[in-house]
Design a protein around this nucleic acid. Structure first.
Length: 744
DNA sequence: GAGCACTGC
C-alpha cells in the first residue's frame, strides 16, 4: 500500500506543515553551508517540501536536486506526491528512479531515488556532475547504501581540489534524519549546522509489562503474552485498531491461532473469508504473504469491529496502516548477522533497540493519541536493549561493498570515513574473498575481472560464476540461475497451523517432482528448471499456483534475468572480455561454472550424513531437508552450496554435487592467505617481502585431505565456544520453551 | 528429517 494513502485532508495542504514556518531560514542555511543536517520527526514535511523550496530558490539552475530513500515504495510515492503539489506530470520536472523503473526525463529537476541507485550513479560519475544538491533522507535508518554514500560524499567533496572538478558550482549536501544522533552527523561533516523542525506526531503513552525480563532474552514465550495483552486491550480500551509486533511467520500464525482460540472460535482457517470473532478482526501480516492477502490489511474494518494486525517488522517502516491506536510490542526482531568467526550469515532472534521500540510505538500516534503496551519490563529495556540499532554496515558481509569502494578509487578501505567503522576483521575477510575470486590482486588493486564484476548487482561469488559461464558461452544456464538466487525463497510451504497438513505434503511432493524432472539431483538445476518451465508455460501464474511456487518472486526473477543479460551484453561489446572453450556435457559445464564462484563453499562428506566445509573454518554441516539431495546417499562425496542456515543444526541449503577434480586447483587458494596478513593489502602498503612470503606459502600448498583433518581439529578445539554453537544452543532453548508453553 | 525478518543494485 502506498504511503500516500495516509495523508488526511488537513495534511493535504502543504501550508499546514510544520516546515513552512522555516522555509526562508532553511533556504538560507543551504546557501551558506556546503553541508547541512536537517532533523525532524515524521510528519514535519521535510521529505516533500525541502526539495520544492530549493527548486523555487533557484538551485535547479545548475543541476538537479537528488533525494535518496532507503526503500523503493517511498521513492515512488513521495515523487508522486510532490509532482502533484508542483502541478506537473510525474517523470517531467519531478521524477523518480528505482531499479527496473526509471521515471525521469531530460526536464527532471527534482529526482527521488533509492540510495542504491545513487551509489550506482557515482560509479559512472564520481563528481555527481548532474546534481546541484544531494539530499540523503532517512539517514537514521543507517542502511548499508546510505552509510556508504555518507562516507563517499564526505571523501569526494571534502578535498577542496575536487569540489569543482567536472562541476560548475560546488555540490550542496543535505542530510536528513529523525532526531537521533544529529550531533554525530554534524561532527562527521566538519561540524556543519543542524536545523531542527518540530514534528507532528500525537503523543503515545507507553507502558512496560512484566512478562519478559533480562533473563528471557532468548525466550519466545512472549507469543502467549502478546495475545493476552491484545485481548485485554480489546476488552477494556475504547475503539481503535491494534498492531502487534512479532518476529516471523511461524510466530504470527501461532499468535493468530491463539487469538481465535481465546476469542472462542475454533473453526478458524486461513482461507475463511469471515475472520471476525467477538468483534475483533484478526489479520496476519508478513513479507512473503501473497499480495492480495496483504491488501486486506488496509481495508477499514466493518463498523463496530476492531482490527488486530499481527505483523513482523514490515509494519515498522515499510507499510503504514491507518487507524492504529494500540501497539503491542514483543521487544524482539529477527535479524541477519554476519559472523566473521565462522564466515557465515546467521539469522537470529534478538531484542530490538530502544530507538526501534520508539519507532514501533510511534506507529500508534499517526492520526490520534495512542497507547503502546510493551510486554517487557524496564530492566529488560535498560539491560538488554541497545540504545540504537547496530548499523547494517557493522553486521553484514562487506564483500560486494568493498569491491564497489575499490572500483571508486577508495584503496584504503580501512581508513575510509565510515560514520561507524565496521570491525577490521569484517573488512579483511571481504578482501580475502575478493582476492579468492580474482577480483583484486595481491596488492589490493582491482583486476580486470573485478572491474567486470562490479557492474553486476549480485554477490561476487555468483558474478564470478556468471562471468565464467559467459566466457564459455553458456550464460543461458547461469543468468536465470543467478536471477533465481537473487530473489526470496520461491518454494511455498504452507505452515502447519493455518493450513491442513495435507497441503504441506502436497507442496513438498510438487517440489520433489520438479527436482526429479531435471534428471539430476541438484538444487541449482532445480531452480534453473523452475525458471525455464514457468517461462515457457502458457499460463505462468497458474503454473506457479499448481506447483506451490511464489509467482511474485518468479516475476522479479524474470526481470532480474533481463537486466543481468543486458549488463553482460554491454560488457561483452567492450574489448578484453575473456573467452574460453570447454569440451564436455552440459550438466558438467553448468556445474563447473558454479564451482568457479562457489569454491569457497565446498563441503566434503565426513562421516555418515555429516559434511565438513573446506574453508579455513572447517565447520561440520548437514544438508537441509528442503534440498533435493537430502537423504541421497549414493556417491555424494563432494558438494558446493549456496547458503547456510543455523537452526537445530548447521544446515547447507541449495546444494549441488560436484567432482573433486573440478575444485582441486581452486581449493588451496582458500588457505593461501591468512586474513590477518591482509591488513597491509587493505592499505596498499604491501612490501615486496610480504608478496614473497605469500608465494612461499603457496608453494607449500597442502593437499585437500590434510585440509579436512586440520579443519576437523580446529573445529574440535573450538568445541562449544563457537558462535554457531551459541546460535544453535539458543535455538534449542527457544524450541524447548516453545514446547513447554505449548503443553501448558 | 525442517521452518528463512526487512531492504537494495
Amino acid at each position: 500500500m502506498a504511503k500516500s494513502t495516509r495523508w488526511s485532508v488537513e495534511e493535504n495542504n502543504p501550508e499546514h506543515l510544520p516546515i513552512c514556518q522555516h522555509k526562508d531560514e532553511l533556504v538560507q542555511a543551504v546557501k551558506t553551508s556546503p553541508f547541512l543536517v536537517v532533523t525532524g520527526e515524521t510528519g514535519s514535511g521535510k521529505t516533500t517540501q525541502l526539495p520544492q523550496y530549493l527548486c523555487e530558490a533557484g538551485f535547479c539552475k545548475d543541476g538537479k536536486i537528488g533525494i535518496t530513500q532507503p526503500r523503493r515504495v517511498a521513492a515512488i510515492t513521495v515523487a508522486q506526491r510532490v509532482a502533484q503539489e508542483m502541478q506537473c506530470t510525474l517523470g517531467k520536472e519531478v521524477g523518480y528512479q528505482v531499479r527496473f523503473d526509471d521515471c525521469t526525463s531530460q526536464d527532471t529537476l527534482v529526482k527521488y531515488m533509492t540510495d542504491g541507485c545513487l551509489l550506482r550513479e557515482i560509479l559512472s560519475d564520481s563528481s555527481l556532475s548532474q546534481y546541484s544538491v544531494v539530499i540523503l533522507d532517512e539517514v537514521h535508518e543507517r542502511s548499508l547504501n546510505t552509510d556508504i554514500l555518507l562516507g563517499l560524499i564526505k571523501k569526494i567533496f571534502s578535498g577542496s581540489s575536487k569540489i569543482t572538478r567536472g562541476r560548475s558550482s560546488p555540490l550542496k549536501v543535505v542530510v536528513m534524519s529523525a532526531t537521533l544522533e544529529t550531533d554525530k552527523l554534524s561532527a562527521f561533516f566538519s561540524d556543519c549546522p543542524v536545523f531542527t523542525i518540530p514534528g507532528r506526531l500525537f503523543p503515545v503513552c507507553c507502558s512496560f509489562g512484566s512478562a519478559v525480563g533480562p533473563k528471557d532474552t532468548e525466550s519466545i514465550g512472549y507469543v502467549k503474552e502478546v495475545v493476552k495483552v491484545a485481548l485485554d486491550i480489546h476488552g477494556s480500551e475504547p475503539a481503535g485498531d491494534i498492531l502487534v509486533f512479532l518476529t516471523g511467520q511461524t510466530e504470527i500464525e501461532r499468535a493468530c491461532d491463539l487469538l481465535f482460540e481465546k476469542a472462542e472460535c475454533i473453526d478458524y482457517r486461513f482461507d475463511v473469508q469471515d475472520q471476525t470473532v467477538d468483534g475483533i478482526l484478526i489479520l496476519p501480516l508478513y513479507g512473503s504473504m501473497p499480495t492480495d492477502q496483504q491488501r486486506q490489511i488496509f481495508q477499514p474494518p466493518p463498523p463496530g469491529i476492531r482490527k488486530c494486525v499481527v505483523a513482523t517488522n514490515i509494519a515498522a517502516t515499510s507499510l503504514t496502516i491507518n487507524g492504529i491506536k494500540y501497539i503491542v510490542d514483543s521487544g524482539f526482531v529477527k535479524q541477519l548477522n554476519h559472523n566473521s568467526r565462522v564466515g557465515m550469515d546467521i539469522l537470529e532472534v534478538v531484542p530490538i533497540s530502544q530507538s526501534e521500540a520508539q519507532q514501533r510505538a510511534g506507529r500508534a500516534g499517526r492520526t490520534s493519541i495512542g497507547k503502546c503496551f510493551r510486554i517487557y519490563n524496564k530492566e529488560f529495556w535498560e539491560k538488554c536493549m541497545p540504545e540504537y540499532t547496530i548499523p547494517e554496515i557493522q553486521r553484514t558481509s562487506l564483500t560486494a561493498v568493498i569491491l564497489t569502494l575499490k572500483c571508486l578509487g577508495v584503496h584504503d578501505v580501512i581508513r575510509f570515513p565510515y560514520l561507524d567503522c565496521p570491525e577490521e576483521r569484517f573488512i579483511l575477510e571481504a578482501l580475502k574473498q575478493l582476492y579468492q575470486y580474482d577480483a583484486i590482486d595481491r596488492r589490493g588493486k582491482v583486476t580486470h575481472l573485478g572491474e567486470l564484476m562490479v557492474e553486476f548487482p549480485l554477490h561476487p561469488s555468483l558474478t564470478r560464476a556468471v562471468l565464467k559461464a559467459a566466457a564459455l558461452g553458456c550464460q543461458d544456464l547461469l543468468l536465470p540461475l543467478a536471477a533465481m538466487l537473487s530473489v526470496e525463497n520461491i518454494f511455498i510451504r504452507p505452515g502447519l497451523l493455518f493450513s491442513q497438513p495435507e497441503k504441506q505434503k502436497e507442496a513438498d511432493e510438487k517440489h520433489s517432482a520438479l527436482a526429479a524432472k531435471t534428471g539430476s539431483m541438484n538444487d541449482f538445476a532445480r531452480l534453473l528448471s523452475v525458471f525455464q518451465l514457468c517461462k515457457s508455460s502458457d499460463r505462468p501464474s497458474a503454473w506457479c499456483k499448481e506447483n506451490w511456487i511464489h509467482w511474485r518472486a518468479l516475476k522479479s526473477a524474470f526481470s532480474i534475468e533481463t537486466q543481468l543479460r543486458e549488463i553482460l551484453l554491454r560488457l561483452q561489446q567492450k574489448k578484453d572480455f575473456p573467452v574460453e572453450t570447454f569440451d564436455g556435457n552440459k550438466s558438467e559445464l553448468f556445474r563447473r561454472c558454479l564451482c568457479t564462484g562457489y569454491f569457497t563453499n565446498v563441503a566434503r562428506r565426513s562421516i555418515g550424513k555429516v559434511f565438513c566445509t573446506m574453508d579455513s573454518h572447517g565447520s561440520m554441516v548437514h544438508i537441509h531437508p528442503s534440498s533435493s539431495l537430502f537423504d541421497q546417499e549414493a556417491e555424494l562425496n563432494w558438494v558446493i552450496f549456496h547458503d547456510v542456515l543455523v537452526t537445530s543444526r548447521v544446515y547447507i541449503r541449495t546444494v549441488c554435487p560436484i567432482r573433486y577434480e573440478w575444485v582441486k586447483d581452486l581449493l588451496p587458494k582458500l588457505h593461501e592467505v591468512d586474513v590477518y596478513e591482509l591488513s597491509s593489502v587493505a592499505r596498499e602498503e604491501v612490501t615486496e617481502e610480504e608478496v614473497k612470503r605469500w608465494e612461499t606459502k603457496e608453494a607449500a600448498k597442502r593437499p585437500p585431505d590434510v585440509c579436512v583433518e586440520d579443519a576437523m581439529k580446529k573445529l574440535e578445539k573450538r568445541n562449544n565456544e563457537t558462535s554457531v554453537s551459541d546460535a544453535r544452543a539458543r535455538y534449542l532453548q527457544r524450541k524447548q520453551q516453545r514446547n513447554l508453553s505449548k503443553s501448558n
